[in-house]
Design a protein around this nucleic acid. Sequence first.
DNA 1: CATGAATGAGCGTTCATTCAT
DNA 2: TATGAATGAACGCTCATTCAT
Lengths: 187, 187, 187, 187
Amino acid sequence: MRRKDDNKQQNIKQAVIKVILAEGFHGASISKIAKEAGVSPATVYVYYESKEAMLQDIYQEYHEQVYTYLSGQVRKDMSGAQFIESLVRGYYSYIIECGEAFYFVEQFSSCPALLGGCPGIEARSKISLLLDELKMRRIIKDVDNASITAILFTPVKSIALQYHKRGTVEAPILNDLIQMIQDALLR
Amino acid sequence: MRRKDDNKQQNIKQAVIKVILAEGFHGASISKIAKEAGVSPATVYVYYESKEAMLQDIYQEYHEQVYTYLSGQVRKDMSGAQFIESLVRGYYSYIIECGEAFYFVEQFSSCPALLGGCPGIEARSKISLLLDELKMRRIIKDVDNASITAILFTPVKSIALQYHKRGTVEAPILNDLIQMIQDALLR
Amino acid sequence: MRRKDDNKQQNIKQAVIKVILAEGFHGASISKIAKEAGVSPATVYVYYESKEAMLQDIYQEYHEQVYTYLSGQVRKDMSGAQFIESLVRGYYSYIIECGEAFYFVEQFSSCPALLGGCPGIEARSKISLLLDELKMRRIIKDVDNASITAILFTPVKSIALQYHKRGTVEAPILNDLIQMIQDALLR
Amino acid sequence: MRRKDDNKQQNIKQAVIKVILAEGFHGASISKIAKEAGVSPATVYVYYESKEAMLQDIYQEYHEQVYTYLSGQVRKDMSGAQFIESLVRGYYSYIIECGEAFYFVEQFSSCPALLGGCPGIEARSKISLLLDELKMRRIIKDVDNASITAILFTPVKSIALQYHKRGTVEAPILNDLIQMIQDALLR
DNA sequence: CATGAATGAGCGTTCATTCAT
DNA sequence: TATGAATGAACGCTCATTCAT
């Protein structure tokens, strides 16, 4: 018998991300995805139980990726300012470099019907642990992690998406942002 | 006095927002919207050229609403700290109170295919003018408005959405957030 | 606006029966039915909520028809023997003459999944009332109506279907059958 | 001793009957059947040329079974009344006890497209020979065997199916039926 | 203006069957 | 022999939109 081709599943995954980037979440039909992946629509169902399950599977894969990426950007011996700068620059780089995956995750997250079916993930924990330690060491303010991550990540995401659209990267803007986030979080 | 026509168009607009909240962007078909609005599907096309045009029209209407709302929350004689606090609390209130419209705008914004067709809007200008003045008066930092609004609004949006899901509102969290945003923006 | 065309619904109904007769219950797809009826597949859903609902509606219409037909074949002043003969000959005629409808009802009845969704019908009652009266008048045996109708109708159905296939009608066979059913039922 | 091959084919046959009982003729797809039988869908095509051929083969096997079963219920020295009673009770028992196989045969028979492809079978002959002898001995009426079997079997089938649905068994009803069939057939 | 009818195009999915091992 | 992978064709159904009144 034919062996399951791992390439094929990868082709499908990449096709999903590519089609969603090109046509939006709504335009990403199974038949378009299959065509992009070079397989028959029916073949998609060899690898996934349903379209929803397929999207969720891809989401699970890429959702955690950013946290893994960010964890690699910081070290324990960093100062608070360095720590924040590294995370912010790292997040910005991730969005710019892994734009397709990032875009997919954002699109997926904006659809409550899909998110709802996903098992609750706490991938943020890697970052949370770091934040907790910084709080204990009285380096950053002792406030809820939700607020900290909100300040740390959402502004840079907003900036990255704006400038990504325009195709330009603005070093001074990012520097200003880092400075402000440091002012916000450091004691 | 409004004519019947306006009534129908208003019904349709409200139906769109209601259906999208209830069923998501995917589930918002013309026939469901028409049923909700109490009109025939064909009637929608009396008022709008296409579904896309309808959504864009509604987006334009509600997209600006938040800035109008926020403009009413601040006064010229406020201190920088008060100014920031008013905007943040105002934005938070808006999200909680005008959840339907806010949700629609967010969903619409997340779909580039739709956003792309929209004429570039500069509704932010009301806020931008205020920010420019504060910068001139050396009250807030002199950085790009994009960065300032990113810091001012995206974290509170993030918090509001998180806590809205859980149904609880947390005063201390919002207070902390305001403090941090003030630290970030004030000179 | 266009007015609903009763002809169109009739076309669809007849197309259902025709396609099922030609291709069997399993081959009767919406697209074949629509093509036969000269409408678009989508049009079927203007008139019916689903394929299942459509089949059930047609079933309900034709299921009762035979009992109405049979009721017209008997009169109160008939003797028991005449009564039985009329019903048996009537049923036979119905099967031969209204073969398409009869075939549809039989096919539908053989599919429990469809039958199950149908509201319990007691169209048999017209016949049941007649049988009850004959039992009271001590003309036919006083046994359960289910048994009586089983003897009255199922053998002739079996014969009719056999001979319908072969295209021949056999008067003596029907006569013998009537005689036996009379022997079975009359006191 | 059976070889593995026979085992697999038997598994498939039983799976077909089981799946059809559980899910109806519609729901009996090759993949479900294969799963139920514990084999691959492709394996089905090792033993059968097509799905149709598979069903026909199973039909041929079970179609005759009832006649074999009934032949064992009667003996040459029985009276006419005993003979009829034995056949009727036997047929009833068969339907109740071998419900799965009976159900399969009924479902198959109701689909002309399948039946048409089957070679004409005369499995009835065992019973026919017995009937012929009884006719010669002037015990039962001298009418066409089609009529006799119609009277003998179709009413009890109808009753059995009705009562099987309701889960109850009714001794008096069966007794009445037997009496009536005897009155119909015996001289 | 307002409508319910009508539809071509497309949806996600399953099917019986064949392929390659 | 036996298989899981692979598929073209078809499924029932919904869509945004247009038609005819």
